[in-house]
Each structure stands twice: as structure tokens, then as C-alpha cells.
Design a protein around this nucleic acid. Sequence first.
DNA 1: AAAGCAATGTCAGTCGCTGTCATCACTATA
DNA 2: TATAGTGATGACAGCGACTGACATTGCTTT
Lengths: 199, 199
Amino acid sequence: MSLTAIKYDRGMGRWEPNARGRLEQAAMSLYLESGFEQTTVAEIAKRAGLSERTFFRHFTDKREVLFWGAGALQDLLVGTIASAPTTATPIAAVLAGLEAGAALLQERREGAVQRQSVIAANAELQERELIKLASLATAMADALRQRGVKEPAASLTGEAGIVVFKVAFERWINVTNEQDLVPLVRDSLKELKGVTRDG
Amino acid sequence: MSLTAIKYDRGMGRWEPNARGRLEQAAMSLYLESGFEQTTVAEIAKRAGLSERTFFRHFTDKREVLFWGAGALQDLLVGTIASAPTTATPIAAVLAGLEAGAALLQERREGAVQRQSVIAANAELQERELIKLASLATAMADALRQRGVKEPAASLTGEAGIVVFKVAFERWINVTNEQDLVPLVRDSLKELKGVTRDG
DNA sequence: AAAGCAATGTCAGTCGCTGTCATCACTATA
DNA sequence: TATAGTGATGACAGCGACTGACATTGCTTT
């Protein structure tokens, strides 16, 4: 995932550079100012100095602007699981992936908070977020299967990992004092273990 | 004048009776014939002998036709959890709810299979399904909190229950020979317990 | 200079969905 | 019997998301 400041990155940007980034910025600022629904794609394009049609060439729909980064997170999770020691149990491998992802998010806390405030205010955006999380779960399950984990253990472990992450993430967002996401993830997993133990 | 011979069904249907049901049937048949995207709301309304506007008076959007039954399922789950013996652990109460829900679905297996084949073919529908499941999870967590369960245990148990249900449901759908959903749910929970134990 | 190319612009069109107002079938009341 | 509700529906106009088709632009290559 290219981050920012692409100086000379191949043939990119014969016109005003970084069209995609401008669209992203314009969209995020408008979503924060007026809310997601009230913001029109025409407005986003105008603020970015581009046409509405161009917006849809960079993003499949109005929501995707906010979820563009999910791919990088997924790659990181899958990669970490894949490169976990063979001796690691499935849930330990997943935890390693989640911790890596948590560390990534930790660096972008401010952006994550803003993003989440927009998402929390709109049902369509929540739907999109949930399908991204589901995609993460299946990707992790695939990575586990590659490690020899059978079904339904692979799917369950992947889904359980997402549950742990979701709960930890929510606490991380709604906490006033800056707190580390990584230990929250560890605690969340411990809690899940406790909860599934009794009964 | 009256050759209609309508059985006075609780004041419903001064016009042709059961408009909502006709819309539902029309939609489902068209989704099965042509797919969700290819089907237009105008077509649904026409087949039901109603106007497009009327469709949107009965269903908030084109997708909701397939999900309005989720409310009943949620009530059943929450009710079962609430009425579980006070001695029951959180996960046991959730399991009781899931079993009740599974029994309900078991009676409508044919419909569930058709429904799922439509949903599986369309991403928008999957998004809607996921948010309904998320709603189920939070409703179960609420029911647990009412029983005195603290956070984050309540949320985690609710989410874990949904995970168990999802995995069991998927297996139930994709199996050729008719199999009982209830034991699949039980097995799924056992697997989750096993998976969270080691590591 | 000409050709090639990828990103962008322009335009028309479909479809989901909403607001508004009229109309209909029936009911309640005078 | 007449009249005034009442809730469900129809008819219509309009917005905004998204798409397909085609022209244009600015740079690179030949």
C-alpha cells in the first residue's frame, strides 16, 4: 500500500498529482463536517478538483473511500499468521496476527478515531465495515488451513479472532485516555477463553 | 357487488388482501429467477399487482424483503436467554437461545436454503445479513447484562454465540443430506471451546 | 511531428428511494 | 341515507448513486 508523497512513482499523476489522495481527503473532511448521507459525491469531486465520474474510477462506491486501507491490514494479518512458528497453536498464530494489526492501528490512532466516528453515525457504513471484518475472518481461516488446521476449527478460530479484535477495538476507541490496543487485544482473548470455559 | 368473498381477516386488506405477502413472494421468486441485482423494484411491484411506491411503504429497501423475519428470531433468542435459569452460566444461556433459534429455522429449512442461495450470490445482501447478525449479538449481550453479566464478558459471549451459529448454519446449508441444525450448533460450540482452550 | 496511452471530462441514462398530493375502499357518525 | 373521516394505495416529480460510451488532455515514445 502506497502511503503518501509519491514523488516519481512510475507514470502516476500526469495531471495534478495524487488524485486518489485528494478524493480521499475531500471525502473524509466532508463526511466529518456534514455527515456521510448529507455529503454528495459531486461535492467530494468538486472539493478535490475532479469530476464525479473520476471519483467512481478510483473508488467503487461512496463508502469505499473509508475502507480502502483494509487490504493492507488483511495482508499484515495473513502474513503474520503464515509466518508464525509451526509449533504455534491456531489461536496463538491468530493472536500474533491480531497483535501485528493492533500495532499498525496504534500508529494511526487519530485517523482511526475520526473514521470510526463517521462510521458509527451511519448504518450503511457499518454494513461495509462488517463485511470487511468478515473478509478478514475468512482470510485468517484460509491462512490457518494452509498451516494444516482442519474445518471447522479454522473458520471458528478466524471468526473468534475477529470477535476478540472487535471488542478490543471498540474499547480502544471509546476510552478517553490513550491506551495501548495490543494489551486490550490480549485481555479480550483472555476474557473469551474464560467465557467459553465455564458452562 | 361482492364476489370477492374475503374472509374478514382482522380488518387487513380492504383492497386485495395480503399486499405485503404478495410483494414478498413476488420479490423472492424474481430474485431466484433473475438474481437480486437484475431484479427491479418496478418488476416486483408489477408481479404483485401493486405500485412501486407501495413496495417502499412495506419494506424500507429492496433488500429488506429477505430479512424482515430476523425480528422474530431475535425475540426468540433474547426471550430464551432471559428465561434461562439464574444458575445457568452466560454461555449456557446463550446456547439455549441458539438451540431455540435453530429449532425455529429447522422448520423452515427449504425456505432458508433458497434464501441463502440468493444472499450468497450478492454482496449487498451479505452486508445486510451481517448487520442483522451483529444486531442479534448485541441483543444477546443486552440480555446477558440484564442477567448481571459484566462487560466485556457479555459482549464477548454474545459475539461468540453468533460465531457458533454462523458456522453451524453454514454447514447445515451446504450439506446434502438433511441434518439437524441443533446438534450442529452444539458441536460448533464444543469446537470453539476446544479451539480457545489450547494456546 | 506523429502516434500511443492512461487519466480525466462530458453526457445521457438507469435505478433505488423519497416527498407530496390525489384517490380509493371502507367505516363511523350524524 | 348522507356525510365526514381513515388508512392503504396510486401517480408524479425529483434527487442522488452509479454506469456506459465517447471525446479530450497531457505526457511519453517513436
